[in-house]
Design a protein around this nucleic acid. Structure first.
Lengths: 218, 218
DNA sequence: TTATTATTTTTGGCGTACCAAAAAAATAAT
DNA sequence: ATTATTTTTTTGGTACGCCAAAAATAATAA
């Protein structure tokens, strides 16, 4: 009991409800999990029986506290592994997710403890996402990805999650240097490009680049 | 395709045929895999269809070269992980097997490559068992566990796989010191104790202890 | 409000991996 | 060689996780 399938459902519900146990619908789940909605209906019924979610017919699903707790341990395992793969084994930040998708299902508390220890108990993974601690507590911070920033907001560039020379050249060209203050003007409807003001100049940042820039909310 | 179940069958067939693609019977497999023989019959039929084994009704099963190749990659993954857990993460040699049973099913060649690299491409795992290389080639050595030694054989004590003080005391008491030459007299029918001559004295070694003593065949 | 579209659920089915019990075959013992 | 024992296979059945197609429900637009 507590199959990989169940773990993937819980994790996905967690992500879709943005950690708030908000209601998630079947279509969203079906899309993320690459199954058809009928399959989701079956699954959430079972999760309900297991008291891991509250499922209301034709309405939606949300995590129970038991389900949320379990989801957080999956997320923790995933992010610890991502960090380990990147920091200790030299994988690129773009490679780690896929491998961690498999490794997150290894059920051994001591293993995760050892990995975390070796890493110095990090609070954030290579993508800048927070790593829940053993109790599921998440250290919240003002650091977000530029891609998550909102129009009219003021931010400060704090770091990057891609260290390739191509990307660093890109930043230089757009005058986005660490420590620079920025203000978001708009986000393009068409392609989600971010139009922002930095160093008094207006620049346009692609969504792909925005994924790799960490900013602090001011 | 290439489920965990299939991997476990191939690995188990490999072990039971001691790497020689010798014939294995259903009962043995059923015992090792903790399923009933009927389940094994079904499974080996399917493996046969996949051309991973040759299964002859009411006779037995042996690996094909494709099956053997696949088995060797599982064994490699298992032993690389065992070594990594022991050498890099500080797990005891008695803890690593169980965790490696799960980790061995992670399918990512680059991951194993990185682990092996970090370990300096070891040829033997913490139990003294050989680690197949990427091509499945096994470095054979004259080193075996004392538990695998045969009566009348001459050996030299080369090392141990347990470093607990309790075990080292045991060795001292029995006068088995590294470098000492030994000759196996007999193996007790009753409990598999090994009666051997070492330093001109006859001693009896329990099967459990014999598992932890590495000897060289002379 | 009614029609249209989107989402959800029901129903019937499939493959994998297992089991129990009974029948068949092979092996060992007398 | 005949019985007894062990091993293997067959048969019928279960749980899980999935799909396709049809029916029911909800949401949106006209």
């Amino acid at each position: 009991m507590q199959s990989e399938t169940i773990e993937n459902y819980l994790k996905t519900i967690y992500h879709l409800s943005s950690g708030n146990s908000a209601i998630v619908n079947n279509k969203q789940l079906a899309d993320k999990l690459h199954v058809i909605p009928a399959t989701v209906t079956e699954a959430v019924k079972k999760l309900h029986d297991l008291k891991l979610v509250v499922y209301e017919k034709s309405y939606g699903t949300r995590l129970t506290s038991a389900g949320s707790k379990m989801a957080l341990t999956i997320v923790r395992r995933h992010r610890i592994w991502e960090t380990y793969l990147a920091n200790e084994l030299g994988f690129g930040w773009d490679e780690v997710h896929e491998i961690a998708e498999e490794l997150e299902h290894i059920k051994n508390d001591k293993l995760i403890k050892k990995l975390s220890e070796k890493l110095g108990h990090p609070n954030f993974d290579p993508h800048g996402d927070p790593i829940p601690d053993e109790k599921g507590k998440i250290q919240k911070s003002n650091f977000i990805k530029l891609s998550e920033a909102k129009p009219k907001g003021a931010y400060k560039v704090m770091g990057v999650t891609d260290h390739s020379t191509a990307f660093l050249k890109y930043l230089e060209k757009h005058q986005l240097i660490i420590g620079a203050g920025i203000i978001i003007k708009t986000i393009e409807e068409f392609d989600n490009s971010i139009i922002l003001v930095c160093q008094k100049k207006e620049v346009s940042i692609s969504p792909k680049a925005a994924e790799c820039i960490i900013v602090e909310m001011l």
